[in-house]
């Protein structure tokens, strides 16, 4: 059954091969697909139809049952026609508009007049959705990287140091707006033997992060080239959004 996942577990893991399996009524696959896309879709729905915030979960539940879970519906998603997440957004928007029109025709408790704003045209980008998407991708990347680095029995005996160094030198300054700990502090804390040792530890961390990021994105975007394009697209989007404040 559809349930709202926790924040850290939400992320779109579906690749087109998995999507293909989902269209063949693979129930666990479909369930996972819906769970993973739930939060970004909810954010998109509430941003597009602010007047329907209270009904967002219900509408998403109905969208899942009427569309996603219907045999053959996901076959309409054509990789060549655009990104899968755009397909989902357009479908959800059309679904909600259809519900609103029907409700308006029957009786007037929910009408377009009640909405705080007109819904945007279908091609309008949903920044909230894309931001939620980027957050989900990055959160999953970090979750996997941390688990990977802390995995017992890894070949590199100091692999857990790699995560720790990445966390305190790069992550915490980003998230907390603090100055990164100085070089001297790092070598003392981690017992680094030389600048090459210190640099290699930090470089390894960056490489592991990049590898997990690529893997996470490849799972829904496809092969290397598409993943690289998607990483660039996400970066461009975030920079554009950041510049606007």
């Amino acid at each position: 059954m559809v349930s709202e996942p926790t924040k850290s577990s939400i992320f779109p893991r579906t690749d087109w091969a998995e999507l293909g399996r989902a269209t063949e009524a693979d129930a666990p696959c479909l369930d996972r697909l819906i769970r993973l896309y739930w939060q970004p879709l909810k954010i998109f729905l509430m941003a597009t139809f602010p007047g329907l915030k209270q009904q967002a979960d219900t509408l998403l539940q109905e969208f899942a049952e009427d569309k996603l879970l219907q045999d053959g519906w996901l076959r309409k998603a054509d990789q060549n026609r655009g990104r899968f997440r755009d397909f989902l957004k357009t479908s959800l928007r059309n679904f909600v508009l259809d519900r609103l029109n029907r409700a308006e025709a029957k009786n007037p408790p929910i009408s377009l007049e009640e909405l705080e704003q007109e819904p945007p045209p279908p091609a309008a980008p949903s920044e909230a959705f894309d931001l939620a998407w980027a957050q989900a991708v990055l959160a999953e990347t970090l979750r996997r990287m941390e688990a990977d680095c802390k995995k017992p029995g890894e070949d590199q005996p100091r692999r857990s140091y790699i995560w720790e160094m990445f966390r305190i030198r790069l992550l915490e300054p980003i998230f907390n707006d603090t100055v990164p700990p100085a070089y001297d502090q790092l070598i003392e804390r981690f017992g680094l033997k030389s600048p090459t040792d210190a640099s290699n530890t930090l470089l390894s961390a960056k490489r592991i992060f990049k590898a997990h990021l690529s893997r996470v994105i490849k799972e829904y975007a496809g092969q290397d080239a598409a993943a690289a394009t998607e990483i660039q697209a996400l970066e461009d989007f975030l920079i554009r959004l950041a510049k606007r404040g």
Binding site: A134, L138, E235
Partner: peptide, 17 residues
């Protein structure tokens, strides 16, 4: 850190990316 990501704005996410 995943929770921190969900609380972060675009500029921080761009830096992280």
């Amino acid at each position: 850190s995943p929770a921190a990501v969900f609380q972060s704005r675009a500029n921080k996410l761009a830096t992280l990316l």
